[in-house]
Design a protein around this nucleic acid. Structure first.
Ligand code: MN
Ligand code: MN
Ligand code: ZN
Ligand code: ZN
Lengths: 142, 142
DNA sequence: TATGATTATGAAACAATGTTGCATAAAAAG
DNA sequence: CTTTTTATGCAACATTGTTTCATAATCATA
């Protein structure tokens, strides 16, 4: 984690009107240093430091609310989270990209360059969000 | 539950080479009598009868393996399950339809008539499955 | 930069969800 | 009906998620 990122983390928190705390900075660092999406348990024991489970839950929820991270649906026990790259804001996410879950290595990644296609539903439905999760085998595992 | 369904449940289990037990029949009945997808906790206390949690977990896993039901990813705690309508089989699901989760009533439904669009990923990925979960407000809740 | 108001954290206690091993019960096969 | 095979229930445990409340850290401002 270089100094530039430290600064941008601080700015990110400030922009979301969140006070700057140890836990929040460390969790954001972990996100920024990670390729794929992270699950709750990844945060509990952080390099050298241990955060309380409750604090992690609350931090992730706060980040979700503020549009700093987005969640990725799964059929296993653990919800995954990833940084929002685009200009998401409180209660207004628009990370319209596809997610990929590798069945080999288990990693879940954001495919930022693959847009979610338009979905046409029968009349009567109001669409707020579309999640696309592709599973298969990733580049590295083939 | 009419007699015709009882018979078809029996046939369904037999076709999947599963022995016909109380729990399995009752859980399939619940699926057939339900509009939307069901979560694990729906099964634990079944009309008049209580099934052991472990048995329910094992039954759902068995049905998944055999291609009798499919799971629907969520970002909340509970995975949803729905009957496979088409000709799914062991380790070869192909329920290529879209799922809808209503933010008002919480119901998750299979939109059997809305196909999952083709997704084109960057080279190097092998696609095994595509899940599309749309959230918004359903017909009834608008 | 010290002070008070506000907000975040940690700890405990609890609730809900999911897993494993094993004895018994039920179903299928013969 | 008897034997073999499979499913179930129970206990014990592990993991995941929530609530409450006292304390600590952060923020605003004087
Ligand atoms: Mn993403
Ligand atoms: Mn479905
Ligand atoms: Zn992989
Ligand atoms: Zn609804």
């Amino acid at each position: 984690m270089n100094n530039k990122n430290k600064v941008s983390i601080t700015e990110l928190l400030r922009a979301s009107k969140l006070s700057i705390t140890d836990t929040r900075v460390k969790i954001l660092e972990l996100f920024m240093n990670s390729n794929g999406a992270l699950e709750h348990s990844s945060f509990e024991k952080l390099a050298g430091q241990t955060f309380d489970r409750v604090t992690v839950y609350r931090t992730l929820q706060t980040f979700l609310d503020k549009g700093i991270i987005h969640s990725i649906p799964t059929t296993d026990t653990s919800i995954r989270y990833a940084l929002c790259k685009s200009d998401c804001s409180e209660h207004d996410h628009h990370d319209h990209h596809v997610h990929f879950k590798c069945e080999e290595c288990g990693a879940t990644t954001c495919l930022e360059d693959t847009d979610v296609p338009e979905i046409h539903l029968p009349k009567g439905y109001a669409i707020h969000n579309v999640d696309v999760v592709v599973s298969g085998v990733c580049k590295q595992c083939r």
